[in-house]
Amino acid sequence: MKKATILFMFALLATVSVSAQKYITKNGYIRFFSSTPVEDIEAHNRQVNSALDQKNGDFVFKVLMKSFQFEKALMQEHFNENYVESDKFPNATFSGKVKNIGEIDFTRNGVYQTTVEGDLTIKGITKKVTEKGTFEVKDGKVIGKSTFNILLADYGIKIPNTVASNISKTIQIDVEVNLEKLAK
């Protein structure tokens, strides 16, 4: 009994220690933007789950494809039904590391330039990506921001010829996550 209690205390201490190093949000923001001479198309998603481990730099986010909001209902329908097939592939994920996590001083307010490297999965296709971004430490919170481009063809997203002039082959992705220390 005594041994079990000691083991439980060790497990509890380990959990507290690990969770104190994690920053999370359930309301991260991702926007994608396509620009062509014919029209600009953008969509917004404010339901992004994201977590950053301060100790080892692990950084993940998960996006529900059906949570993207478009200005036009028809665009949203085409996006879900034809382009990303969100019934078949409901999530997009990123799982990687902040390569220079050691350069971020989580105890001091400031903006830190970072490089994030990992696996981006969209429509069931995973590609290695390395992108620049910033992490701003502000009053105990961490605001992560990055803007990068993806090629639709890399993720098996085919645009029909009839609307090929309306949708860019390269899409700009903006990510902003306001991470808070996981309280436990």
Binding site: K26, Q47, N49, K62, V63, L64, K66, P90, N91
Partner: peptide
Amino acid sequence: GLCTGYNETDVIME
């Protein structure tokens, strides 16, 4: 509301 899915922690309704 509209159910947009499950993100491994929560069911999301919009």
